[in-house]
Design a protein around this nucleic acid. Structure first.
Lengths: 205, 205
DNA sequence: CTAAAAATCATGCTTTTAGAGGATTGTTCG
DNA sequence: CGAACAATCCTCTAAAAGCATGATTTTTAG
């Protein structure tokens, strides 16, 4: 029996590309596509799927969160992350959320088929080229950020100062500062410039 | 006669996707693909092409620079920028370098065909949703930076403070500060965080 | 339930940025 | 040549960020 695949990506090009690449492969069958998380979950509710390809960047919720949802609601469905970025960071996040692997979109046909085979067999697959990541500034792992820290981070990136952020979130300036300090510590940097550069590189903002 | 298309993108998926989407369209013919700038230039030297689709992010040089090269060496070839990002900033950069338009990769088939028709007729096409761009922080045009300003910008992004930058460049702290102020003014932002976010978004750092 | 983690707030201090307002040397280009 | 621009330097002030230390409350997860 062929492996049943669901592709979740908001880019028609990627959907088409993957479908096209997998169309003439006997052992694989693309049974559905979705361009957002809601459709993806809906599809899984009424269809049998072996492997779900999840884009990291989706319009509604991030692929990382979707991965968690899928593994919670459909433990038997294996998930494979899809992304244009080859950041070491994403791997650990996705694996933490139960993904069976990680595939960069610049992968060739062989990589993709290899990934499907590997994952279907119960293994892991990841073809990220770690070497390309700037070793000096890249943190070992992606720091796990709390809800509040993420909020503060995006507001910092938008150019708000601590007092402005405090006003926006209805909290005290010292609290904002605490979150800010924690961000610096978690990202292992010593100032805002490095923080934003890293966060931007990771697609967090 | 059908429109001859060259697609330049380092993602096999995008190449496949576009080819697949355009395969059954009579009026369009994908005559070649390239996954980097060098191959793209080489192809153009020995083939007739009407429109070149250029990815913003290429392994060797950026699509923005490639666009300039193409327009310099092959003025008759019309170029269309391709990117996953819908940043207002890219548009002006590409248009400044002679692009006839801008297409986000999340575009549907209709958009793509519309873009080809529009560009082939000598017009412009851009389907970027400006609304999604934060209007407060996005500059109208990409500021032109001087050599020194660029140097200071990357050092700021690396997390150095003004005194450290001064030491590195063998200039006074006040000079560094001047450059920094000019950067803020040119990017129309009021602090480092916004500056780095913008610069990162533009691929400057 | 309970322990850990997160979110909240405070005080005090030092360093860095942001901003205003110049001024001087070059270089480049019409 | 002269205007424009780049790069360099200066002073001064206020605001913001960075750093340390510690404490309370709420939430989360085993």
């Amino acid at each position: 029996m062929s492996v049943r695949i669901l592709i979740v990506d908001d880019h028609p090009l990627v959907l088409e590309g993957l479908k096209s690449l997998l169309a003439d492969v006997e052992s694989v069958q693309v049974v559905g596509t979705a361009s957002n998380a809601i459709d993806a979950i809906a599809f899984l509710k009424s269809n049998e799927v072996d492997i779900a390809f999840l884009d990291i960047n989706l319009p509604d919720i991030s692929g990382i969160d979707l991965c968690k949802k899928v593994k919670d609601q459909f433990p038997d469905v294996k998930t494979l992350a899809l992304s244009t970025f080859n950041e070491r960071a994403y791997v650990s996040r996705m694996i933490q959320n139960g993904a069976s692997g990680y595939l960069i979109k610049s992968s060739g046909k062989e990589d993709i088929l290899e990934a499907i085979a590997q994952v279907q067999a119960g293994g892991y697959f990841m073809n990220v080229q770690f070497d390309q990541v700037t070793p000096a500034t890249a943190p070992k792992t992606v720091p796990f950020l709390t809800r509040r820290e993420k909020e503060v981070l995006v507001l910092i990136a938008e150019g708000l100062t601590n007092p402005q952020i405090a006003e926006q979130l209805f909290i005290s300036v010292t609290t904002v500062n605490s979150h800010r300090q924690n961000l610096l510590i978690k990202f292992e940097v010593s100032n805002t410039a490095s923080l934003i550069k890293l966060a931007a590189g990771l697609g967090l903002i």
